[in-house]
Design a protein around this nucleic acid. Structure first.
Lengths: 201, 201
DNA sequence: GTCTATAGTTAGATAGAC
DNA sequence: GTCTATCTAACTATAGAC
């Protein structure tokens, strides 16, 4: 392999750099989940990944850029925001995801902590969460509307309010679960609610 | 009125000091709501109340002590945690409180932001929120159990899960409302849920 | 009770050697 | 790409004059 052209960097260093970036994002994910964005420091992230704080800033130009990388990475890994397969029902997908979330408390904590923190002034994560909620509401609203067309939505239920309520219930129950895991059964609470909204086939 | 004894301080200075403390707590309430606990600084609180940061620490020994004062003050003022009058139904009390909350976004924001922030490591508000959730769940659970005795709880509904779910829905819908007030109707979402759980008289 | 001064820490970000 | 050194800024908290 000869030296590469300007538009095609060498494979070796490139792959290593990519790995470095991912390690940083994973460490930052942990730190932001444990301490929040304002409470988490670049120094602690750098320590976990085994480099200096200034070296870390070679990969991400600023703390806020690192936060956005963490949020986008979370979506990629968990498959969040993607559409479910047509064969799986809405209820099944929700419960399956809820059960999975019980196995990754750190991911749930990151989401819960940063979402609320993003409500504060000039928070770099604000746009991310605003758009996420808009997208989720639209997605669930469509699903409920489709169920209504099949006559499987309880009469009187408004699809848009049901979408917002389902997301709200999910978020809220995760907060209580993080505060005290034994106090609530996340999946069962969601199942109860969906059993009410959606009529059996 | 003569000068007071040692156990009964003079009214003048005492009342003034009490007023000072309340002004500080109100200012801190605003600052913590806008920036969170970690993001809010004593200097900004002091500026708002018109005194130096060190003078502020004369009234509250530490930042965490100020936070607890803010949280307890919120309960006192909003009447939160108190029991409702026996004549008023659970649903009526919830909807009334939800409608009231729409008029005080700062109070809702303080609660939402600090609750999630308290999930992070060594947060001074953690115990407050843990106990608050326990108390709320017990209170609503009792109400649902009472309704069940009257045959007014939908069959199959578990009072404890319903209590946790009601709180979760309420918390979650407040988050979405803070993120975008026009996106959701808080009171209507709660009304929908309670109409499902509770059968008409 | 209020202030100035400051200790003591930590933070994010930049400059430049290697 | 990685580091040391440094900058600038902000924070909580304490000491002590008035």
């Amino acid at each position: 392999m000869t030296t590469s052209s300007a538009s095609a960097p060498k494979r070796g260093p490139y792959a290593k750099s990519k790995q470095r970036r991912e390690n940083i994002v994973i460490a930052a994910h942990e730190v932001f989940a444990e301490h929040g964005y304002k409470g988490g420091s670049l120094q602690v992230v750098a320590d976990r990944v085994g480099m200096s704080q200034t070296s870390l800033l070679h990969y991400f130009p600023s703390k806020s850029a690192l936060l956005l990388a963490v949020l986008n990475w979370r979506d990629t890994v968990t498959g969040d925001g993607g559409s479910r397969s047509p064969e799986e029902s809405l209820a099944s997908a929700v419960i399956r995801q809820a059960r999975f979330n019980e196995t990754v408390p750190g991911v749930v904590e990151l989401y819960t902590v940063l979402c609320a923190e993003s409500l504060t002034a000039k928070h770099p994560g604000r746009d991310y969460f605003t758009q996420r909620y808009e997208g989720l509401r639209r997605s669930y609203s469509r699903s409920f509307t489709a169920l209504a067309r099949e006559g499987r939505l309880r009469s009187g239920v408004d699809p848009e309010r049901a979408a917002a309520s389902l997301i709200a219930l999910w978020d809220g129950i995760q907060t209580q679960w993080l505060m005290d895991p034994d106090s609530v059964d996340m999946a069962q609470c969601l199942q109860d609610y969906l059993d009410f909204l959606i009529l059996p086939e």
